[in-house]
Design a protein around this nucleic acid. Structure first.
Lengths: 203, 203
DNA sequence: CAAATATACTGAATGGTGTTCAGTAAATCC
DNA sequence: GGATTTACTGAACACCATTCAGTATATTTG
């Protein structure tokens, strides 16, 4: 019978409707300033309804994070496509930094905000895993050809990711103001840091 | 007359009493979970009183941040003392990472939490500035002797700090779980990253 | 010294938050 | 057509930061 299928479909549509509204509002106003009530309002349902589809605000964030990671992966697949793995690594780095600069609220919600990840241990590979391994793959290809100074691919990934995340997140939290960088020169300065850093890790 | 002096002193004591309680509670339960009511309770005053000494919760956080930066500076002055600037740089890096691992809530409040910094532009140099320049000084001494690959001290500081902050903050947000590091091996892995990175930037 | 003023503090009130749950109305099943 | 399941509501709960009229104490003034 098709009724339960339709119900299933409707449930999915409702979940999508909620996450879409949530994503929009998280992006515009940030996670903290977006309340369940606001989201409920915007989709014209009562607050209680959202809890029929998501256990709590964290679970909703987790869902939106998943979408955000896909968006970053998308950006990687579009902009980090060079056949030369070293060149591709540079594209990866710059794409990552640009993503952080252009989508601060999204970046926040993916990497900075304190939220669900801390609890559910297993799910990490789902959310963000594929995106992370896009970087690991690139590094492994570089290392297979002996192009990087690293010995362990995981150490390599840790360092490269830490550098990129450090650059983006210090900027997002305005900590770079101590070194008086003008607003407009932030992107070039961060790009230069990426270039210099990658230069220092190729053999 | 000594009355206004006493008043002044009492005002200072009250402020210290508030920040001390706040620091303790921020450290134990984190910034978000610590409410003005809780702080007021713990010092046996009404919530309203706190607002006679601090404009809002952000201003209180800003004060506590100041203390936290001093604590980090203290750690630097204790553990990063080698005469050899390269060796000192390594001590600095490890001290920073250890600080982040040992005082996660404090680190959070200094560098990760979204709070006052975003508004007051001028005050940054007060809060954390001295601590930051301890790193810059060390880098400048290294570079003066031509020991590092960098040309610009600010680019050097940006990169080194980003790497250290990236390592600490990705760990604090459990993002290193994608690379299945066991809880106990986190500190050695991060230390190894610091060592490897610093090796890659000395000429 | 007494009255007037300034200071320090209170705690209830305002308008928000996430989350729960008894109650209702519609859809589905038998 | 009556019973049951499903979807949804919105008021209620326990919090939150912040404000402010009111009070009680301390200081200054006449």
């Amino acid at each position: 019978m098709g009724i339960s299928e339709r119900k299933e479909r409707e449930k999915g549509e409702m979940k999508k409707m909620i996450t879409t509204a949530a994503m929009k509002m998280f992006l515009e106003d940030g996670y903290a300033k977006t309340s369940i009530r606001n989201i409920a309002d915007s989709i014209e349902y009562s607050p209680g309804t959202i809890y029929l589809y998501y256990k709590d605000k964290d679970e909703l964030l987790y869902e939106v994070q998943g979408q955000a990671f896909l968006k970053l992966l998308e950006a990687f697949k579009t902009h980090a496509t060079s056949k030369d793995p070293i060149r591709r690594l540079e594209q990866l780095g710059k794409t990552y930094v640009s993503f952080g600069l252009e989508n601060p609220e999204l970046y926040d919600l993916m990497f900075i905000i304190r939220a669900p990840m801390n609890v559910d241990d297993e799910l990490h590979k789902d959310n963000g895993g594929e995106t992370f391994f896009y970087l690991v793959d690139c590094l492994e290809e570089c290392m297979k050809n002996g192009l990087l100074i690293f010995k362990d691919p995981m150490q390599a990934a840790l360092q490269v990711w830490s550098m990129m995340h450090g650059l983006v997140s210090l900027n997002l939290r305005c900590r770079l103001k101590v070194m008086v960088i003008g607003e407009e020169s932030i992107q070039p300065v961060l790009f230069k840091a990426v270039e210099e850093y990658l230069d220092s890790i190729v053999v």
